[in-house]
């Protein structure tokens, strides 16, 4: 096995969410509700122009206030209806961190600028000693023998206990509805855990993970760990960032496979 990992260059990331959007695009069919919330109107071409809504416009003429993303006067919307049809799980998460301030010098009416923004995007770090594997009572999370990716073995075997989500320092295990515990055990809609697969399907045909291939400012990379270290140079990378949560858990160090380059101070003379 050749353990894969991610490389994240914070000096380049501008939190644009392209990685996250690319992930959701690629893994659309792997969302937890893929077989529950189906775009019924796309089942076949016959239904496109059918009378399924009583022959009415869109989601129903006259019900638009309730059936659309238009908000009513209480600020309520029907986002949930629309949200059914794309991936809710955030296999990749992008966070923004802002330091310092921008204030006003009242004597000159000018701005005093000392603000700094940084981003962090992480998915699953495909740890060498993953805590999610240790806590799963069903033994349903395993390491891929080829890439070292941490994978769910069987969607059906997940009992939605949430222990993996609790244990992971980075929230990598995801559910299409975070309120998963409220569903009854036998409810077919009860959300089950899904997570980043490292795009092992893409890797198997020689492509990098969707997020990496999509990052237009080349802040992300992925590859076998030893290759990443060789490529970026041991002295140029770090395994910690102030914004990256510690890998220490009550069950030990998870040994995440992610390397960083920190945002630099860059004033030019």
């Amino acid at each position: 096995m050749s353990q894969w990992g991610f490389y994240f260059n914070q000096d380049r990331c501008l939190g644009c969410l392209t990685c996250k959007m690319a992930c959701k695009n690629w893994n659309e069919k792997r969302r937890g509700d893929a077989s529950i919330n189906i775009r019924s109107y796309l089942q076949d071409n016959q239904e496109y122009a059918s009378e399924q809504n009583g022959g009415e416009y869109g989601v129903g003429l006259g019900q638009e206030e309730n059936q659309n993303i238009y908000l009513d006067s209480e600020g309520r919307s029907n986002y949930e209806e629309f949200n059914k049809f794309y991936m809710k799980e955030d296999w990749r998460r992008v966070e923004t961190y802002e330091y310092g301030t921008c204030s006003l010098d009242k004597s000159t009416n000018t701005f005093v600028q000392g603000v700094d923004r940084r981003y962090l995007t992480i998915s699953c770090n495909h740890c060498s000693d993953p805590v999610c594997v240790k806590v799963c009572p069903m033994g349903n999370i395993r390491k891929d023998p080829v890439t070292g990716a941490v994978l769910v073995v069987s969607y059906e075997s997940c009992i939605s206990c949430g222990k993996c989500k609790e244990a992971c320092p980075w929230d990598a295990p995801q559910f299409y509805d975070n309120n998963f515990a409220a569903y009854k055990q036998d409810d077919p809609k009860r959300p089950k855990m899904t997570k980043c697969t490292l795009c092992v399907d893409r890797i198997s045909v020689g492509l990098k993970p969707a997020c990496v291939a999509a990052c237009w400012n080349r802040a992300l990379d992925a590859g076998p760990v030893e290759e990443l270290i060789a490529k970026y140079g041991e002295g140029n990378i770090t395994t910690t960032l102030p914004e990256f949560k510690s890998s220490q858990t009550p069950l030990g160090d998870t040994q995440p496979n992610i390397f960083f380059k920190k945002k630099t101070d860059r004033i030019r003379k």
Binding site: D144, P145, L151, V153, S154, T197, V200, D201, S204
Partner: peptide, 8 residues
């Protein structure tokens, strides 16, 4: 424990 079939 190869990946799920939908990971092909």
């Amino acid at each position: 424990l190869s990946p799920q079939d939908d990971l092909v």
